[in-house]
């Protein structure tokens, strides 16, 4: 009966599909014209804006922006899976032996509290004592009588490493601190909790949270650029030392560091390196 053959056909089709899967795994991806940019999720949204603009100017080339985290980016540059890595932390000494960092922008870091919090200025030392766990109540820094709730970023994130270096003097952050994995998450928590204090990328703070002045200095773009605001970190593009970049990758890097590219980043709230 016909259905009999159908069954065998189905079995054969299945086999064919399996073979196809195996065959697919054998063939290499054709990467001509495409440039993979991979790494830090905090730089990714900015890189996407840059890539969009670049792609629309150069329709023949293709910049693909991937996330995954700083280390995944560096790993894929090492393995040739990507040409450019995005890195929001500084390179480790073992990495800087064979990788070249390019600073594409500066990012100010804001210490943020709830909108209704009466505290509007803190010293670096006060922030450190809070995050170490020695200052535990807002009244100790001139605020309302309310226990302080700390919000930190995950171990290894560029934001946290910058905070550890600039504020904590590499002292440990209290075990009681809540850990969030993104700027948006920190903002969401601070927005709803009157006891909270956290730190996040300056460009991403809006009027839902209050930015605290550090040592009396307002964390504005100008103060970041002229160096008077202390909490600043670089955003890096990383390429392999001595690697031959494709023309498209080279052009993209040039575009990022050009006035037009930098202008896009400034529009997004970062600080230009020009």
């Amino acid at each position: 009966m016909a259905s009999e053959y159908k069954r065998y056909a189905r079995a054969l089709w299945l086999l064919a599909m399996l073979c196809a899967c195996c065959a697919l795994s054998g063939c290499r991806r054709n990467t001509a014209g495409g440039v993979n940019v991979m790494g830090s999720t905090s730089i990714q949204p900015f890189a996407e804006v840059l890539a969009d603009e670049f792609n629309s100017r150069h329709p023949s080339s293709r910049i693909d922006v991937q996330g995954g985290g700083s280390t995944m980016g560096i790993q894929s540059v090492t393995n040739n899976l990507a040409q450019i890595a995005m890195c929001s932390r500084e390179l480790k000494s073992s990495e800087s032996r064979y990788l070249k960092p390019i600073i594409i922008a500066l990012d100010g870091m804001a210490v943020v509290v709830h909108k209704d919090n009466t505290v509007s200025n803190l010293t670096r030392e006060q922030v450190r004592e809070m995050f170490v766990g020695n200052i535990t109540n807002w009244s100790q820094v001139g605020g309302e009588d309310r226990p302080i709730r700390l919000i930190t970023r995950e171990e290894g994130s560029g934001t946290r490493e910058a905070f550890a270096k600039l504020v904590m003097n590499n002292q440990r952050v209290s075990r009681k601190a809540l850990t969030q994995e993104s700027n948006g998450a920190v903002k969401e928590l601070v927005r709803g909790d009157r006891a909270a204090i956290g730190y996040m990328s300056l460009g991403l703070v809006n009027d839902e949270a209050k930015i605290v002045n550090i040592e009396g200095i307002v964390p504005s773009t100008d103060n970041v650029r002229n160096g008077s605001y202390p909490l600043v970190r670089p955003f890096l593009f990383v390429v392999r030392m001595g690697a031959v970049l494709s023309p498209a990758a080279k052009e993209f890097l040039e575009f990022v560091l050009s006035p037009q590219g930098q202008h896009l980043l400034v529009e997004e709230g970062l600080v230009s390196v020009l």
Binding site: G68, S70, T71, E154, E155, K176, A177, L178, T179, Q180
Partner: peptide
Amino acid sequence: GNTLDVPDSILAPVRTLTSNIALEMGYAA
């Protein structure tokens, strides 16, 4: 909440094994 402390009540924040992995994997080397 992902704190590093052992939770002492059901209202305390907590970090699980999975969130420990996923939080830090992207940056870890």
